[in-house]
């Protein structure tokens, strides 16, 4: 859409034009940041005691969903969808918690690496099945969500296990300044260390290309099948990271998948990633997760039944997408 609105090379671009173009291209993310700031101010206004400690808690509690949202964002950008993220998180979480229990700190590092490799395998199987069977993504990953959840139950039939101390340390408390939650710093570093090089590489461009127009990408020489598998592998790795963060933040592993699959879809859509594929990034979904959580927190402060938080999330999800489609519709007509 944005590319069609501003033909490249139509006129010489000055710095003002560059800023305008940047704003237009990232309008959604900038809007989300604005909304986040407003929400923080609002939270502070209704609850003056809202300070560093709750913010650190917020950072820790949103960590698994942030990573799940990034996992979902990657595959959605590639034109797919992964409904097995919650189950992959449960499986990687129980595996890590079971292996780490009662072991040394160095062993924990090995476990983390092993679990990330497990994420590669899980994502590779999901992607491979999607490509080989040619069954729609949504069906394959839906079915695989049963499979991964079953394996999680095989590993542990009940919540338990443990986490290395260093792993628990890096997701709690603050970093440098008491206002900056360490968990959020970890998420941002991990996500951007993987995502920025990836999105600028050949594979990253190919993922955007197949999401945008699979046939055009194929005719331009993009190996569609391999790229789709690659997108699922990246999603698997981020799901494994999300599973590890579950182990780190709760200290145990639970074989029952949380509500992360559907919430990740919600966060991705609110974060400006088009479900049709090919558009958006990972920053928007990250911010959207914090916004969703802050709304819940505010409702608690306002003494509203917290169940209305769920209602609000649903209404926001539908409402925001409605507004988005109205804007797009107007633009298409203009």
């Amino acid at each position: 859409m944005s590319a069609a609105a501003a033909p490249i090379g139509a006129r010489s671009a000055g710095p003002a034009d560059a800023i305008a173009a940047f704003t237009r291209r990232n309008a959604w993310t900038i809007g989300l940041i604005g909304l986040l700031v407003v929400l923080f101010v609002f939270t502070k206004a209704i609850q003056p005691r809202y300070g560093p400690v709750p913010i650190q808690g917020l950072g820790t509690s949103v960590m698994p969903l942030m990573l799940a949202a990034v996992a979902q964002a990657v595959v959605v950008i590639g034109g797919g969808i992964d409904l097995s993220i919650g189950s992959m998180m449960a499986l990687t979480s129980v595996v890590s918690a079971t292996l780490m229990k009662g072991q040394g700190e160095e062993f924990g590092v090995g476990v983390v690496i092993g679990v990330l490799l497990l994420g590669v395998v899980l994502g590779g199987i999901n992607g491979g099945l999607v490509v080989v069977t040619r069954v729609p993504d949504i069906i394959v990953t839906l079915a695989m969500s049963f499979v991964w959840a079953g394996f999680a139950l095989l590993v542990r039939s009940a919540p338990g296990g443990g986490a290395s101390t260093w792993l628990k340390t890096i997701v709690n408390g603050a970093f440098l300044n008491e206002w900056i939650p360490r968990a959020t710093v970890v998420v941002v570093i991990v996500v951007f260390a993987i995502w920025i090089p990836l999105s600028r590489s050949r594979i990253g461009l190919s993922i955007y290309a197949i999401g945008s127009n699979q046939l055009a990408a194929f005719r331009s020489g993009v190996p569609v099948g391999r790229t789709r598998v690659a997108a699922y592998v990246v999603t698997g790795v981020f799901s494994a990271l999300a599973g590890l963060s579950l182990t780190a933040t709760t200290g145990i592993g639970s074989p029952v998948p949380g509500p992360y699959t559907l919430l990740s879809v919600a966060a991705v859509v609110l974060g400006g990633v088009s479900l049709a594929g090919g558009r958006g990034g990972v920053l928007g979904p990250l911010i959207a997760v914090v916004i969703l959580q802050l709304i819940q927190t505010d409702l608690t402060f306002l003494h509203v039944d917290p169940n209305f938080g769920l209602v609000a999330q649903g209404a926001i999800l539908i409402g925001v997408v409605m507004v988005g489609s109205v804007i797009q519709f107007r633009r298409a007509r203009a």
Partner: peptide, 25 residues
């Protein structure tokens, strides 16, 4: 409003579940 059915029905499931919980209390 041409909202993707996946999103619209997902959002509606949150709304209905939330309201059902409220009703439960």
């Amino acid at each position: 409003f041409r909202v993707h059915p996946l999103i619209a029905t997902l959002g509606m499931s949150f709304i209905v579940l939330g309201l059902a919980n409220v009703w439960q209390l």
